[in-house]
Design a binder for these strands. Structure first.
Lengths: 206, 206, 206, 206
DNA sequence: TATGAATGAGTCTTCATTCAT
DNA sequence: TATGAATGAAGACTCATTCAT
């Protein structure tokens, strides 16, 4: 009661370690269980299968990230682009918010984004990019409409979306310290906005 | 004798298909052998183990890529940066050369770059980036030395190296057609050079 | 208290469905419990084990059937065979009575007779035949004693008992509709009585 | 070479014992392997899965039985029914032939016919009956056509087919000795032919 | 030269059952 | 009274690898 699903928690904890170390496919339920001091069968009381255990590790960050992303998308979409001018640092606040979510459950975030191969999450990144791309396409459309002489390069739009997502992943994987990561995020965002304005929204004269 | 080489070749061919479909870990030697019409033992006659078979599939592109990279590095390093000015398109020729190497053995390149998890090649990308980064660091040093008021941001140097490599991978994975890929590579390179000049080599006044 | 019985009942109901679908061995207590909206432990509160649950499903028909059989045996055994002559339809009434018992709990009857493999009931049919055979042996003995020149073929006696029981099972499994089954039972009984008179009680001259 | 698949044979032998004892579902590959002095993996070298192992035990009898049945069907169908009169013993020869096939691989026959539940053979008996029924329906049609005033009772046609097949199974299971079984088969066949002439081909006046 | 048989540890998963609470 | 957590042995099956021949 009080220790409410203590073993469940321990199981998730050890699973996180194992997934971190060996990835989804490489992870062994046996190994996880023995580390958690639990018999193999126990996993199947708490979770439907290996994949569900993976979700238990990873769903938290994923949901928070997705929610934050949805909110941001709604806000940004309401801006008036006819008068919009980009200033360095414009996107720092959002980026910081998103990054914080990832660093709040650092290991889970890394597992979700880089160790999911073989699980039902193995395409999260691609899915995320696809969603974002759709959203950015509409945004870029609005922007281009208010800027005569501008047109969109579809490949670069897809690529820049990828770069954006990948930038976060790169930060996460190469900068363990949150504060340091937050310091870098500014350059990152400026670099990406440059990319957008120069290579996605290109001059019509091609 | 000729048969020998034939079987070896068929084995490599089917392995390529299997690795492409399921990745290194997911691939089954049994399945490869049966597709190749060869007994299980045969793999171990021709190759030391699963990993060696993977290398047989992948080493060709890897070596050609590495060699080309080495040559390029030597050339570029000899330029005189005191008089250097970047022009759009400067790097297209190199990029084209590298990209062609990848498209010449398209499947092997994709396998090497995205399906190697679990094999001894699983860190090729990281290794490649590390090598490149070292080379770029010296290059950037030279450049900065000839440009008073410029200094290098180490994280962005690492990140830009990553972006550069990742740009190739992205192209490879999302644009199956070589000609189309070659068309995009120009924007890609310009975008990256921009990144270099603005975010890696930043103004000293920070 | 009322709830208690309810849960027990629901458990039996779902168990019946599961046994029907997958047989005793194939049935899963987990699956039964979850269908019944009850915890796993509950089965072991209400029943001793899987086998006891099976009995709970099946004992009703079995007891009613056995009782009816016993009554019939007692009646028939008291007849005077010295004056007995078989007429078509003689046994219809009994057969109808027995068949009705089976159709009154159709699913349970089918489970008992054809899905019990692995349970302690897996030999009910054999047991039933054995009991019946003993009874028929005495009956046939009486009959033969009053008919000089007749002797009994022991194998055919056993076989005819089997045919008799099997006839019921066949009806049950192939004719879901009770009325239709009752219509067929006449031919069935006549066929069997023929068998008895011709092949079980055969002419001594062999 | 000489001992050609010695272990394969031992595996089949032990599997036969295990299937005999516990049925298909109840049988454990582990147990079979350890009895055969072979590791678990070995089964999967020789057979695709548990079901394939079952087939290896059982396919011999099944094929021989089916072949013999097909031949018999062809012969019998060519008879001229307008002049046909049944004599006791008419079918003994066929019955003997079929029975011999079953007794030639006694255990396999029993396993196939009574222990197959859970395997892909679990409906052999039903399938066999269905085939036979189709054949008998045509035969009975021919016969009835040459006998005015006769019509066919469809349920009894199905049932008699079942009785026929079941008669063989019963013999097999209750009479281990082949000679004794062959002695009984005569009564059995006569009983069934009686059934056919009286209850399947009934007088039109119903 | 290359096979085919065999290994044995490993995979995930399911099971009936138990018992403290 | 009945639960929910947990067991532990067993299930079928797959794997990369080895080695006598």
């Amino acid at each position: 009661m009080r220790e409410e699903a203590e073993k469940r928690q321990k199981l998730i904890l050890r699973a996180k370690e194992e997934f971190m170390e060996k990835g989804f496919m490489g992870a062994s339920l046996r190994s996880i269980c023995s580390k958690a001091g639990v018999t193999t069968g126990a996993v199947y009381f708490f979770f439907q299968d290996k994949d569900a255990l993976f979700h238990a590790v990873v769903d938290g960050v994923l949901q928070r990230f997705l929610t934050a992303l949805g909110e941001h998308a709604r806000e940004e979409f309401d801006e008036d682009f006819s008068t919009y001018r980009h200033h360095a640092g414009d996107h720092d606040e959002v980026a910081t918010r998103m990054l914080n979510i990832l660093y709040d459950d650092y290991d889970a975030a890394i597992i979700l984004l880089t160790k999911a191969s073989g699980s039902s999450c193995e395409h999260v990144l691609d899915d995320l990019i696809e969603v974002l791309e759709g959203y950015y396409k509409r945004l870029a459309g609005k922007y281009a409409a208010s800027r005569p002489g501008k047109r969109i390069d579809p490949y670069m739009l897809h690529y820049m979306t990828h770069v954006q997502v990948d930038g976060f992943v790169h930060l996460l994987m190469h900068v363990a310290d949150r504060e340091e990561a937050l310091r870098h995020v500014k350059s990152l965002m400026d670099f990406m906005v440059d990319g957008w304005l120069r290579y996605v929204l290109m001059d019509s004269a091609e």
